[in-house]
Design a protein around this nucleic acid. Structure first.
Length: 856
RNA sequence: GGAUUCUUAGCUCAGUUGGUUAGAGCACCUGCCUUACAAGCAGGGGGUCACAGGUUCGAGUCCUGUAGAGUCCACCA
């Protein structure tokens, strides 16, 4: 038997291990229809946060739901090596121990990185277990696994051969701390305090100068021109002349280029082709030299003359001093501007001319856009509006820099000897040296939906489970990952990698801020599990926002979810206590309330299933919450208390509870398993492998719904009257109904007995109020008691208020029903319903009017 | 500059293809230990759905505009 209170710690103990031991999470039953999902692989850099918890719970709900619906579910777990993120952490850890990455050497460093990976992978698996998620561990993958590396090499070589990958010298984002190139997506812009430095560039052979403003004065050593707009009448006559580059004292030309914006700054812009992407383009147009002035580590090089070897920011300060001395500095204008930072090391990113590998995006993006136009082959996003984000990005993207000057990752399969290059996996022979760089971590993750299944080999796994059915992830990762999986999937498998893409939002803190380490407002999901249990956390995370919307974390809500589970626990306790000796479930000779709750259950099953299929878990949550709490607990269980001698009641109790547990199981795997295991009658050894409830028309008694609604409203109304008028239990009153079952139900709920139900007479009592007539209850209820003059007035007020309300409502309905537009256009049943209500209200009004008259 | 989401009760949020008198949780008020649950039960109060127009028989929902908030992309000499 269940304890008096729900204890999540006891309930969750041991269940996950048991499920694993029973092989419930394994895929591979070929008699069933396959259903596959790939878990977005977390980085092996740290702990799972609430966003992960949300993401995996959505997937687990889908997996468990599909499994209970008879599918062979493959939910494939894995982790991402997270090239730069992990490398940065390992470097930092080594630094604490006084070890330098470069002194350690590539091989030793990789050993340390693998140690790190093993440690963190173990943490992550423990957290998955705590979350109760049903992953098929027999298929677990890592992005540096042999299968993954094989796919990556295959794809790289093939793209190179197709001309979709090329090596080129371009301006890329350079992280001077990690000393690697970054893609644009790995750069985060932050507003910081900076300045416009206005510098004098004297025009050759004159005393005149141009006022050139820059935020990065140290790059002036790399200036190879000054540009003005050809339409700018202030300056265009100067085009073709030279200016003297300050400090360096060499001559550079004044050129005319559209890039110079007349509205912006002074209208004059210095051109540094090696250190600015726009200037690079200008340089190409005008055939300018590209002078690199900064080293890989962010120090200045010999081109910076006396600042050679200084850090770029030191050099900036010293240069400004120098310019002041030379009277070349006009002024310093303080500004706040946004500056790119490395996502992982937080270093200020330097636009840097360097030779890197790129993926040519245009043809791939085009493929995605075209595929999205085809209803049959497109990836369906949930919610649908997220498709626009993808299209937006695909419409406007530039080539993807995929080489990283790191060690932790998949090494680029290119080999060099003298001036020759060969792109292949194996070394072409003696003297050939492999490219030192590794690939962007997203290059391997982009192949994840098929590399994990064995692609490019023709494996059974790949054939059975690809394309996958659903991918679940946050909208923040559409560019990084979703888009890239789609174009790689289309390019290499000829198919979309997943049929549906369920997008969720971000978890925010209580005041709506993003959760982040720097703000220190992060919540550890493991703490929440410890306090409220995994089931409460899961239900909270997945039922408190609409699809695609952000979720504000509120511990109070997790707490109230715990209360809900405790409620389920106690309803189960009640059911178990009263069905201990039952040996079969027999849904015959059903009472009115049995029929009603069974019908409500069927309605709930239908609606929940519908919402589950649409991934609208917030609706499922609301549906289950109100069915369980309002209908089952507050309604049916209360009614069952005076019907418990009936076999049908016991059967209905256990039948409805069993169905409730199954409907809840995808959301709350632990507590539903615990209660299920205590049922007197059950079909399976575990709820996990039981069948999901199916709508059953034989258990629908449609007419009970309105009857029960009216009955319960009536009961509420009487209680309200009693309460408002401070009527004690022993008051006398009467009501009548042609339906005996309803009569009994009301008597019981209102705790009436023969002594205080009277049909006639008032004795010492006065009439108090009559509850309005309804379809099922006739001339029904009168309370009697002695009242004071004040009370009398109060009652009259109430009656008049009720009368006014009815009158205005009737007027409104009559107006509506005489509106030909409404009659012609509104659905028929809606009009019928309206007419019915009008009739009822008229009856009720008649009643009230009579009562008011008799009162006086 | 472009895109996108949002604005509904004191707070946090739902609200399906337009269709009765707009819902929930928490908070609030009143009364109850009615043996499944006081982390509960019973009852109650609280919203001119940001604002202004428009379409419609009918708008929280669709369209246009305004204001405010968030996010992404681009720019940032």
């Amino acid at each position: 038997m269940l304890d008096i209170k729900y204890n999540h710690k006891i309930v969750e103990e041991g269940k996950y291990t048991n499920w694993i031991n029973k092989d419930y999470f394994l895929s591979g039953d070929n008699t069933k229809t396959p259903f596959s999902m790939i878990l977005p692989p977390p980085n092996v850099t740290g702990k799972l946060h609430l966003g992960h918890a949300w993401d995996v719970t959505i997937q687990d709900i889908i997996a468990r739901y599909k499994r209970m619906n008879g599918f062979d579910v493959l939910w494939l777990p894995g982790m991402d090596h997270a090239a730069i993120a992990t490398e940065a952490k390992v470097v930092a850890k080594l630094k604490e121990q006084g070890i330098n990455k470069y002194e350690l050497g590539r091989e030793k460093f990789l050993e340390k990185s693998w140690e790190w990976k093993e440690e963190y992978a173990q943490n992550i698996r423990q957290q998955w277990a705590k979350m109760g998620i049903s992953l098929d561990y027999s298929k677990e993958r890592f992005t540096l696994d042999e299968v993954s590396v094989k796919a990556v090499n295959h794809v790289f070589i093939s793209m190179y051969e197709k001309g979709l990958i090329y090596k080129g010298k371009k301006i890329i984002n350079w992280d001077p701390i990690a000393k690697t190139a970054l893609s644009n997506e790995e750069v985060v812009y932050k507003d910081i305090e900076g300045a416009f430095y206005h510098i004098k560039y004297f025009i050759e052979n004159t005393d005149e100068y141009l006022d050139v403003a820059t935020t990065r004065p140290e790059t002036l050593f790399g200036d190879t021109a000054v540009a003005v707009n050809p339409k700018d009448e202030r300056y265009n006559k100067l085009i073709g002349k030279n200016v003297i580059l300050p400090i360096v004292n060499k001559l550079i030309p004044i050129i005319g280029d559209e890039h110079a914006d007349m509205e912006k700054g002074t209208g004059v812009v210095k051109i540094t082709p090696a250190h600015d992407p726009n200037d690079f383009e200008v340089g190409n147009r005008h055939n300018l030299d590209r002078v690199v002035v900064i080293n890989e580590d962010g120090t200045m090089n010999e081109n910076a003359l006396m600042f050679n070897g200084l850090d770029r920011f030191d050099a900036r300060n010293k240069l400004i001093e120098k310019l002041k001395e030379e009277k070349l500095l006009i002024n310093i204008e303080k500004i706040t501007h946004s500056v790119g930072h490395s996502e992982r090391t937080n270093a200020i990113v330097e636009p840097y001319l360097s030779e890197q590998w790129f993926v040519k995006m245009a043809p791939l993006a085009k493929k995605v856009l075209e595929n999205q136009k085809n209803k049959k082959t497109k990836v369906n996003f949930i919610p649908k509006n997220q498709e626009k984000i993808l299209e937006n990005w695909m419409n406007d993207c530039y080539d993807w820099c995929i080489s990283r000057q790191l060690w932790w990752g998949i090494r680029i399969p290119a080999w060099y000897k003298d001036n020759e290059m060969k792109v292949q996996v194996e070394s072409p022979g003696d003297g050939w040296i492999q490219d030192n760089d590794v690939l962007d971590t997203w290059f391997s993750s982009a192949l994840w939906p098929f590399s994990t299944l064995g692609y490019p080999d023709n494996t059974d796994l790949y054939n059975r489970y690809y394309p996958t059915d659903v991918l679940v992830t946050g909208y923040d990762i559409i560019f990084f990952w979703v888009a890239r999986m789609i174009f790689q999937g289309l390019e290499f498998t000829g198919k979309k990698p997943f049929k549906e893409c369920v997008i969720h939002g971000l978890v925010r803190d209580k005041s709506g801020r993003k959760m982040s380490k720097s703000l220190g407002n992060g919540i550890d999901p493991m703490d929440m599990i410890d306090q409220y249990g995994c089931d409460a956390l899961r239900f909270f995370l997945t039922t408190n926002s609409a699809p695609g919307q952000d979720l504000r974390f509120d511990e109070e809500k997790v707490k109230s979810t715990w209360n809900f589970i405790n409620k389920i626990w106690n309803a189960s306790r009640f059911t178990l206590i009263n069905t201990e000796n039952i040996d079969e479930i027999k849904l015959t000779n059903l009472s009115f309330s049995d029929k009603w709750i069974l019908t409500r259950l069927q309605q709930t099953i239908q609606s929940v299933t519908n919402n589950m299929n649409k991934y609208e878990f917030n609706n499922v949550g609301a549906e289950l919450y109100s069915f369980i709490w309002d209908d089952f607990c507050d309604g049916y269980i209360e009614f069952s208390k005076f019907n418990m001698d009936k076999k049908s009641t016991q059967s209905t109790l256990i039948y409805v509870l069993t169905n409730i547990l199954k409907l809840l199981h995808p959301f709350m795997p632990f507590v539903t398993e615990e209660i299920y295991s205590n049922l007197a009658i059950k079909e399976n050894e575990s709820i996990m492998i039981s069948d999901y409830p199916k709508y059953n028309d034989n258990l629908v008694f449609a007419d009970t719904i309105n009857l029960m609604k009216e009955t319960r409203e009536f009961i509420t109304k009487v209680r309200t009257i009693k309460k408002d008028n401070n009527i004690k239990k022993d008051s006398l009153f009467t009501f009548n109904s042609s339906n005996d079952e309803i009569k009994i139900l009301i008597s019981n709920c209102l705790k009436l007995n023969d002594d205080n139900i009277i049909i006639e007479n008032q004795g010492n009592y006065n009439k108090l109020q009559i509850v309005s007539k309804t379809n099922i209850l006739e001339n029904n209820l009168v309370y009697y008691y002695k009242e004071t003059e004040d009370e009398k007035n109060k009652i009259m007020n109430e009656l008049n208020k009720e009368k006014d309300k009815l009158e205005s409502s009737i007027l409104k309905r009559e107006k509506l029903l005489s509106n030909t537009g409404y009659i012609n256009n509104a659905p028929k049943d809606l009009i019928e319903e309206e007419k019915r209500k009008l009739e009822n209200e008229k009856l009720a009004l008649e009643d009230i009017v009579k009562k008011i008259a008799s009162y006086n």
